[in-house]
Design a protein around this nucleic acid. Structure first.
Lengths: 197, 197, 197, 197
DNA sequence: TAGTAAGCGAGACGGTACGTCTCGTCTTTCT
DNA sequence: AGAAAGACGAGACGTACCGTCTCGCTTACTA
């Protein structure tokens, strides 16, 4: 049994330090906003040396990405099996809830924001987060279309932007997502009255 | 008659300095990104003392807001008279063009991003930019609905988020806005097949 | 009779402004020290525009010099007639009192100090203050020597430094000038036991 | 045995940086005067970050004090053993030489000057420099008096002011210290013809 | 069972930008 | 033409973080 008072250090990566950093970053973002999220503040809060952070993460953005990837997989995984309209609706509802209710939703918004300021963040964010998720989402839509559940006027990527965009935009501008919005989006975007055109 | 080629203006605000700052900020944002947009750099580029900037603007964000408000009014004014579906489509096309083609579109994205990092920016951005424009846009939609041109399933604010959100989200994630997306959004969101529900 | 409510301005130098500046400078020096004596502060305190100060004085040092010259002539004029040892003693006592008791003594110390930091001040201070006074003091000593009242071992300039130096040095280092110091200096420096050498 | 050619010292104070700052301050004072002695200029000249200066010194005055204390101990130490009139004369000659010939003498004058402008400087200067030296000087005079070498009319502190004051005052006013002045002061102040009074 | 190599807390370092302050110059407007 | 008002370019102030570095320690694997 390791000494519980101080199992610190050694010559392998210290898991406790890793978690302390992730949680400190998350907490600081939620409590004081991205502006207060400096590497020094994270180190202070986590009780960790600055160098320990730089040893494992190239930037604070990557720390946030690590937490976001984990949290997203937990809170709103892309449905794998059943490709029904209802599954899509449920997924979007979970996403909207994550954005507007979950403290971790702030991380997504902060990274999307930071990607506008810094190309390296944009690259990482797309590569490690947006890209993989979009792939799964596209597959979901494709399966649903093939199953005849939906018949979007737009291609899968544009359709996803049309579904996700409004929710993200509302969150970015501080607007509430009104009850029924997700349903309406699914109806309008995924099941348009095609003959009308 | 005042001399119109007044070089520097005594104890009144120096218009040349004001313009130099606005242009310097704009140029720096486009050329080097928001991260390089420091007050010192703006002052350097504009050939202006730092104090002259702080005298008139509380932060670099307000500088950008000033340029954005002017540019937006010029490049994609909200249609005032004719409230047809076609007018709305034209407006959204101009907006999409501004976001993706116009260098000044970067300013909008940067401010929307910065608003996520800093509550003061969020407040200013909403108050001075998003709010006023949204008001006009809402009026446009309301007039069009009353004229029977459109019949949105969603309320005006949610409908606008559903139209604008996808365009903004695409720009934020670096995705292209595919040809036909604006038309599809207008059809889907503003003229849904209501009886079908 | 000029309008007493506001005889301000016109096209001749405003005497009220001149006096306000001199008094403001003096007061600020005494109240807050030389460090707080900025041209802006003087202008504020005197209720005068900054430019009015720069129009008439090349620097704040010259303002202080103006007040010092006036005050010195009033508080410890160099004795003109009687060249006795007693006259010299009296003069030095008045000088010591000015340095340690009179608020205006701070002006002398401040200018002597500033002369160390800035060659222009040194030049002005020597030219307009130290030089003229030293001339009179030298004459006093010469007359007293010729009258057989004193027999200094040192030349007149060195003797004056030997008399004035200790008083100034004590004031500069915040030491008190002990009772009897002036008498002892006069005895030691001006009436040494020459045969003993 | 510790490696004596340790180039940079990890988390301990960097001695090279300390010396670079002291020398830069000294050089700048001598070359361009106290007015040009800004913390920024010192940092620039020393090739050191501004923060490194602020980490170790509360103000530029303390930097100068550090150099002055070291230099004074080297150039004109207070004689410790032999308390003869000759020892005192030698000490004063070394002091006069330091003031008028040695570039480091400017530091003493500058600090004495700055002490007039700023109470904090006065406090530090007295506490760290004037006080300790005066203590040693007083002891020297006391020993010499007890040994019958001198018989000053004034108390030790006043006598020291009477010896040092003229030299400092001459330096402050840019006057030369004439050959024989130190001797005359020692004779006049320390060996007055007491019975004659 | 030592030696060694890596991780760690600590924190100094050279930099850069912050937002504030005062400088001395300038221009306008009023008297 | 003098004066009040105050904007302006310039540049130093002292602070906060950046990302890099070195130190002295603690541990776990290797010889």
């Amino acid at each position: 049994m390791p000494d519980s008072r101080r199992p610190r250090s050694g010559n392998r990566r210290d898991e406790a330090a890793r978690l302390a950093v992730l949680h400190a970053a998350d907490d600081l973002l939620v409590e004081h906003g991205f502006a207060a999220l400096t590497v020094e503040a994270i180190a202070r809060r986590a009780g960790v040396a600055k160098q320990t952070i730089y040893r494992w993460w190239p930037s604070k953005v990557e720390i946030l990405l690590d937490t976001l990837i984990e949290d997203s997989a937990k809170r709103f995984p892309v449905p794998e099996g059943k490709a029904t309209a209802e599954a899509i609706r449920g997924y979007l509802r979970a996403f909207a809830r994550f954005l507007t209710r979950d403290p971790a939703g702030k991380v997504l918004l902060a990274l999307l924001a930071q990607a506008q300021h810094d190309p390296a963040t944009a690259e990482s964010f797309r590569e490690r987060y947006l890209g993989p998720r979009r792939e799964q989402e596209r597959a979901l839509l494709t399966r649903a279309t093939e199953a005849g559940e939906i018949a979007p006027r737009l291609g899968p990527d544009a359709a996803l932007d049309a579904l996700v965009g409004p929710l993200v935009y509302a969150a970015l501008t501080g607007a509430a997502v009104p009850r029924g919005m997700v349903s309406a989006l699914v109806e309008d975007v995924l099941k348009p009255a095609l003959p009308a055109n």
